[in-house]
Structures are given as C-alpha cells and as structure tokens.
Write a protein that binds this DNA or RNA. Structure first.
Lengths: 334, 334
DNA sequence: GTGAAAGCGCTAACAT
DNA sequence: ATGTTAGCGCTTTCAC
C-alpha cells in the first residue's frame, strides 16, 4: 500500500468547501482568525482532527522564512555540565515554540570549531547558543555581523555579539578562602590545555584570588577528558613539589584527576584537597563528594535563550552581555 | 541596514545567465550533473562561492519531501549511557547526511512518552530512533504502521517495528558467575521501578542466571535518578537481610546507590560488591571503578542508524530485529 | 467573513 | 548540454 500521503491544508479546505487560507487562519489561531464564523471554525477544527492533519514543518518554514529551531553548540555533551545545560535548554526552547538542534564540536582546533559553526548555521537555525567564541576576523563572524544573525556566546565574550559568562571572581575568592581556612598556603590550578591562559577567566580569577589572599600558586594543564586527565592526575601525584590543594577547571576533568591521584595512592582530601568547577549535580555522587565552584546553569540557559529568542523576534539587538555570579558548594573533597 | 537577503539559486542563475536547474544540478553534483559543460560548471561553482551561496534547507526539504533529520528520543541525556549514545548517534547521522534531533522524554508515564513521540514525529523527522516501546494499540503505533514510518526501537521490541536490543543472557551469566566465584551465594538486584518486572529482560536474565548457578536472589527497585537512588541505597544498607553483592540496573543509578551505601558506612567491595549495567566509560572513573555489564553501544548506534537510513531509502522494510551481546567488564567494585 | 493569487527556494519531469 | 514548466504545502496581500 505504501505510505499514505500526508494530509494537507487543501485536503481540509476541499473537504468542507472553504479556501486553504481560511483553514490556515483557523489552525494557526491568528489574530485575524477571529474574523471567522464560529461554524466554519468548528468544522475546520473538527475535520483537521478527524483527518489527523499534521502541518508540514518545511512548508511553513519556507513560507515564513523561519525554521523554528535554535542551535546549541558545545564541546562535549558527555560532560555533565553540558548535558545538564542541554537538557535545560531543550525544555526552554520547547517552551518557547522552538526545538533545539544539539551539536558538538570537538573544540580541539579553532578550524574544527569554525567548521561546526558554519555547519550548524547552514542548517538554517533561527538562532544559536554557542559555548565558545567566534574569532573576530573569521568568515563566520563577518556573516553573523552582516546578517545580524541571532547568536549568543556562552563562556566567552565576542565583540559585537551577545554573550553570557560566569563571573568567576566571587566563586574563586570563596574557594581560595575556603582552602586557606583549611590551612592551605599553596594551591595548584589545573587549567584546560585548550584555552589560552592569558585570557582564561577562571585561571585569571584564580591567580587574582590567590594573590589577594597571599596564597602561593602552582600551574598544571590538562586536555580535560577523563582518560587523559587520569594520566595528568598521576603526574601531579608524583610531582615532588605538588601542592596539597588543587582547583580543577571542571568537575568532568576532576573525575579523571581524582582517579589518577588515587591510582598513585593519594587520598582525598587527606593527602590533597580537591575543588572542581561547574557545580554539577554529579559532583554530589562522586567519592568523595566534590567541593565545586558552581555556575548558575539555570540562569545561563534562561538568559541565553531569552536573548536569542528576543533577537529572533527583533525585540533586542546583538551585543548585550550578561555576567552571572558563581558560588562555592562545599562538600567532602576538601 | 538589516539582514542581507540570503542569496538563492536564481541569483546565481541570473548572474551568469543560465537556468536555476542547471545551477541546482551542478551544486548538488548529481549524476545528471555530469552532462553539463565544464565551463558552465566552473562558472557556477565560482559564483556560488563568491556570492556565498547557502542552500535553503526548508526549500529543499519541501521540494524533496524529506527533512534530512533523524530523531533520537531517550529518557535522560544526563545518564552517561545515553549521552554516550547520543554523541555517537550525532556523528553517525552526520556521516550519512542527516542531522540528529535529540529529544528527551521523562519516561515516567506512558502518556508522557506517547506525547513526546507524537511531538517529535510532527517535527517532520525522516526517521526515529526511540529508546523505549510504542504501545501497540496507540494512535502513534497505528500512524507509524500506516505510513510505514521508519522507526527503530532500542531496548524494547515492538510488534511489526524494527528494533535492536541487548542480549542480557551472556553478560548476566558472566556477572553471576563472577560474583559466585568471589564467594557470593546471594545476590540482590536493583531493578528500575519504571519497567514492568514481568517483562524486564535484564531482571529476567538475572533471575535465570542465578537459578542456573544455584544462587539466591533478592529484589530491590529504584526509580533510578541518583538523588533517589541514594536514598534507596541507604535503605538497602540498613536492610538486615541485605545481600553482600548487588547488581544495579544502570551505572547511572549505581552512582546514587553507591553514595547511599557509603553514607551508611558501608565500603565497596569489602562490605558489598557492586556491579553496574551499561559499561559506560564513566564507570572507570568512579571510586571504586565500577564492574559493569556492558552493552555494545557502538553496535547499537550503528545498526539502529543503519536500519533507519535503509528504511528511509526504502532499501529495507520494517520489522527487522537485532540482538547484540553484552559482556562483563571487571573492575574494582567487586 | 471569506477567497484568489502570488510566491517562499528548490527539485523533478519533460522538453529542446 | 541546457531550459521550461510545474509543483512541494504553507502564508500573505489584497480584493470581494
């Protein structure tokens, strides 16, 4: 028998002898739809139901010049911080009548990143939430600026584009004070090897806080994925000059580092205190539960989504920046 | 200035004085495109480049009656098993020229589930990978059957629809033997409270294996999310009749149970041995690293994707079932 | 209150 | 080797 052809607007229209547009008006329940007799409206609604009408997304998109989808581009959805963000973003998008196109970019190389950006833009999303930056002199940047494309970058700020970032000062200050209070005069920071240390806000905030509190610092770097982080953790464990306290660029990376430390026989927090970053829900279930500098994930998703949608609706122009506070969640790894 | 209007096929066509379809042919590099003079082809390619032409997805979809997107509907993308699956599925889909529409359904209630299914189908995906079942007498089921909609269910098999499941017999047998080998004559199983125990294949396989190996069993149930699993873990810890070995329905749930056991002062594996299910990468980074019955995630994603795509291309008809083996990954929690 | 007609950007038959 | 003609299913403008 093959696939039953999908039922269309005209099918309904024909069936009850009105025009397609009347049907469209009613089914979309638009303002002007009020000017349609109750009888017609009801008959339309009824037959739509009966025929099991499902509007065609592509047709509507083409006609309206809108795809009703918002992109969500991040580096690794396996990281709990991002899977939690993605989950929230799906709900938020859905609630506003959009659907979310989740995409990951191995943020290893800038080119790679740009390629993913281009790809997702070519997908025809109406807007994009991008966890990363948009190199100012790239083609994508020009394109985005040129067509005023609704994009908001999270984590990093880009000239001319809207963005939301966490303010690491507060959380980092709390973290350093917390460790100092536990008697640590020297703290190591494991930064992400992929981000430029001269502009890495977490890294910078860390150093600022330590300086302020007269605490010595020590730097490590890790690519970040648990398996490599594990090896980095082992290396740190074997470092004779290693500090007795560590702040790690993400909870995700921390799982790997912790494993490495343990393999080398170190116990947390007895031998080394560990603070993660992101404050993921998962941190509570690690052993020991992880003290962490939490980002306001809810705030991030809500403001970012708000910004894109407003920009899509032309209710706001690009360039707004929002900075959300961070705070320490104290658990047993310190 | 406002958004520069996107450049279209006709723009290119006009610019060099050919017809839209010549341009379309060239840009899509279709077989019939070979019959176009090299000069024209080059000029087209060049101007497309120059004008920065980006094809409209909606237009193409409408014309071809295809959206080039495949849905991925699962319960909780925060669970590492699913975030790993989703990541792989994105790549697989991308590699085949589709993009993935990830969606989550809180699989609490069947109605909820059905609603999500309907929603994602109405999105106009060309096919769907669904981690769950499709109630046989539901509207969606009829619709799917009626229009021969390309869907493959994972985890559960549905009459008439393609599906891929894990064969728990092998892995469960290994697990029980493994524990018996460590001297456990009594094993508890923490099943998911959401699935019907009379048809739950893991649960059934567990009991079968225990019977076969003359091992006593004990049943617990958990809703599964770490926070609730933690409380379930505490309850189990306080149960005077609790077994000294536990197999838990998922690694994700296991994180919660482990935490609960620890809160009550129990040590793993000394006081109780624990085996998770799914064999997620994350298991390696738990403390202690989790022994787990692994599913063949790679196989699941590849075969499922293969099936949908083949069905979309009418190269295969619905109803094929594939069963993939499971196997024990032995780590330190036992 | 309702309809007719044009078109969104692309593709697929059939010309030529 | 290339062009013409029709749509895909919906929205929108303007006329009745």
């Amino acid at each position: 028998m093959g696939a039953a052809m999908a039922v269309t607007l005209s099918d309904i229209a024909e069936r009850i002898g009105v025009s397609k547009m009347t049907v469209s008006l009613v089914l979309n329940n638009r303002k002007s739809g009020l000017r349609i007799s109750d009888r017609t409206r009801e008959r339309i609604l009824a037959t739509a139901q009966e025929l099991n009408y499902i509007p065609s997304f592509s047709a509507r998109s083409l006609a309206r010049g809108k795809t009703f989808s918002i992109g969500f581009l991040c580096g690794d959805i396996q990281s709990p911080h991002y899977s939690e963000l993605a989950t929230m973003a799906m709900r938020e998008a859905e609630a506003r009548g959009y659907h979310l196109l989740v995409s990951v970019t191995p943020w290893i190389s800038t080119e790679n990143n740009l390629e993913c950006l281009e790809t997702i833009l070519s997908r025809g999303v109406d807007g994009l939430i991008h966890f990363g930056n948009v190199p100012v002199d790239s083609k994508v940047h020009r394109r985005i600026m040129g067509e005023q494309f609704p994009i908001v970058t999270v984590n990093e700020l880009t000239d001319g584009l809207s963005g939301v970032v966490s303010d690491w000062e507060s959380g980092m200050d709390e973290a350093v004070r917390h460790l100092k209070g536990k008697g640590h005069g020297r703290i190591g920071y494991v930064r992400s090897a992929y981000v430029d240390k001269t502009t890495d806000p977490k890294y910078l905030a860390f150093h600022r806080a330590c300086r302020q509190h007269g605490v010595e610092t020590m730097d490590y770097a890790s690519v970040g994925h648990p398996p490599t982080a594990r090896e980095d953790g082992r290396r740190i464990a074997r470092d004779p000059k290693r500090p007795r306290a560590l702040i790690i660029a993400s909870d995700y990376t921390a799982t790997g580092i912790l494993r490495g430390l343990r393999i080398e026989g170190l116990e947390v927090p007895r031998d080394v205190a560990v603070i993660g970053i992101d404050g993921t829900d998962m941190g509570e279930f690690m052993n020991p539960p992880l003290t962490s500098i939490a980002q306001d994930r809810d705030g991030i998703v809500k403001t970012a989504m708000d910004m894109v949608v407003k920009m899509i609706d032309k209710e706001e122009s690009p360039g707004r920046k929002v900075r959300l506070p961070t705070k320490l969640i104290s658990r047993e790894s310190t």
